[in-house]
Design a binder for these strands. Structure first.
Lengths: 346, 346
DNA sequence: TTGAAAGCGCTAACAT
DNA sequence: ATGTTAGCGCTTTCAA
């Protein structure tokens, strides 16, 4: 690999001059500058960014830690984050925790060792501990979509009003006339309910309307298609099954619809389904999925802005929560009816 | 940030000793080793991987360049690649080209500048030129899923028998009794047909059976849901529409099904649809998608193995093509029938 | 068993 | 306008 020394020798100048010529920083005569540039091109010079990083004490890289890219929600976040970073001369380094806190911890350490300039951390797979230890070590880190009720925040965060989202889902189903409403949430039976705010919001809406959530109608999954399908299987096999299901993310909602189809049911006639996230796929289901929409672009943008400002030593206070909206599409309708409104199919 | 010098000072030894103690390389007395380790822990030492990379002349990073993570096919590849890399002490650095060859070129250069140890390059967004210039500069690079018929390969490649895949799709539809078969392919009207081998394979099957592809039944998209939906719209609005559509990737196939639904058609009764890729989502559609399955795990594994062996200076010859298989599910049936076979629903 | 010293490729303060 | 020099944090000969 050609170094600035090689170019220097070829051009008959010193490395400093080459560095200046390349970066346009010092004052260099037009002639030598041109000469240096010519040699650089001819010799196929490529700056060694690791050397640069070492001396500059910055890598121009943002670490993005998320559960799994296979969930389009995160893939969309990753793409947006990458775009924004790129526009600012940064790169983003994405890693999956697969919801494994041990792995997550390791990945966080690794990013720190690689000296990323900042980190965006998304839940499931990252302990408060692990996150907090990064921030105390001085590494700019922002939590994105955290859904915990901690005493003390582990780091500045950009988030969403999850409870509001859950409420919207419940409210919509109630307005449609549903009374037996099931929920498929990310969590484990008797264990941690990761999406508890979404569930709380929905069940608050139900309770408020006088139809409190039947505990038997709350099933658990892990945000995958498969788990959504399995939870729906359980729900729809009940002696008194729900007429509507709120899944706390779109992937599980799609799994629910799949199971309904498998059991010979028609969505939305026999079962209304609402999801959460609004991944682009949601609009392309058949029928399109009614869902609580998260403005993914805004979310990623806010997270990036926050890390950037932390990196620059500016503000470190969490912005206000984003508020989700309900996108009514074809997967919900009054019980027994074909569709909510024909023109809402799309 | 603590450096080995800080530790050295604290432990009353020299940096060399610390380095040895940490890496377990030189011979160090048990006592000093323990002392050094203790201080390292206490002082929150984190090795500076950029310094290490600089001196070791390797970053333990593999660059993965792909069109867009939002396509679950690529997200699945990325996850698998990351897993494999991780097990070998490597990281993978993923970037999206968005099928923009200018961007792709830039990203490739950037990876080279960051001194990744190797690159896996996936098509759409990477010119033969750009790829070739990497390999000539000595950077281990393997092409993955390339579907070009170049005179000279730009680099070692792992790929798929795309034509075989297309053939399988066509054959299946013919066996079901379809005669008017449409194709939605990645490409542009009158321009480049990116998925031409898949199309060629399918149309060969049709021709072989005596029902050559009607050129009016070939529409174009760009591998997105939206483009698949649009192409289907065009196809199904024809005076003599097809009774079956082969989309050259799953996302477009899902878009096709969406459009069919929107037009009040029932899949598979009124329209059979077959995709290509077999992303996990395919099995969870309602109905589940019949598709030409690519063994994504095997593909990623082969690609990783190839880069690794190139990095180690071993073999650089492309392995034999992977051969896709047909997964018959619920989106295909004889024209006018509900399902191919009831028990094949899943 | 430990230390001294050089060097990876680059930048930048400080001469000249 | 250009060169000298030091140093980023680490690894690795070579000596002691």
């Amino acid at each position: 690999m050609t170094t600035i020394y090689d170019i220097a020798k070829a051009a008959g100048v010193t490395a400093t001059t080459v560095s200046y010529a390349l970066s346009g920083k010092g004052s260099i005569s037009k002639a030598t500058r041109a000469r240096v540039l010519k040699y650089a091109r001819e010799m196929g010079y490529r700056p060694n960014l690791v050397a640069r990083s070492l001396i500059k004490q910055q890598t121009s890289t943002i670490g993005l830690v998320l559960p799994k890219l296979i969930n389009p929600f995160y893939a969309e976040i990753a793409e947006t984050a990458e775009r924004i970073a790129y526009a600012s001369g940064y790169r983003v380094s994405v890693t999956n925790t697969y919801e494994d806190e041990r792995l997550g911890q390791e990945l966080l350490e690794d990013l720190a060792s690689r000296r990323v300039d900042g980190i965006i951390a998304m839940p499931e797979g990252l302990s408060w501990q692990a996150v907090h230890s990064m921030t105390t070590s001085g590494l700019p880190l922002v939590c994105c979509m955290w859904e915990e009720e901690e005493e003390e925040a582990a780091a500045p965060a950009v988030g969403l009003d999850f409870a509001r989202g859950g409420w919207l889902a419940g409210e919509h189903l109630l307005e449609l006339g549903h009374r037996r409403i099931g929920i498929v949430a990310h969590g484990t039976e008797g264990g941690r309910l990761n999406h508890h705010l979404r569930v709380a919001g929905c069940s608050a809406a139900l309770a408020h309307a006088g139809y409190p959530l039947d505990p038997a109608l709350l099933k658990f999954g892990n945000s995958t298609l498969e788990s959504g399908a399995a939870a729906a299987q359980a729900l729809l096999s009940l002696p008194d099954p729900p007429t509507a299901i709120f899944a706390t993310n779109d992937l599980m909602a799609i799994g629910v619809i799949h199971t309904a189809w498998k059991m010979g049911m028609h969505v939305p006639r026999d079962l209304s389904v609402v999801g959460f996230d609004d991944i682009v796929l949601a609009a392309y289901m058949a029928p399109p999925l009614t869902t609580v929409a998260v403005d993914i672009g805004a979310l990623a943008r806010k997270a990036m802005e926050l890390v950037f400002s932390m990196i620059e030593g500016r503000q470190t206070t969490s912005p206000p929560l984003l508020v989700p909206t309900l996108k009514v599409r074809g997967s919900t309708a009054p019980p027994g009816e074909e569709a909510f409104a024909p023109d809402l199919k799309d």
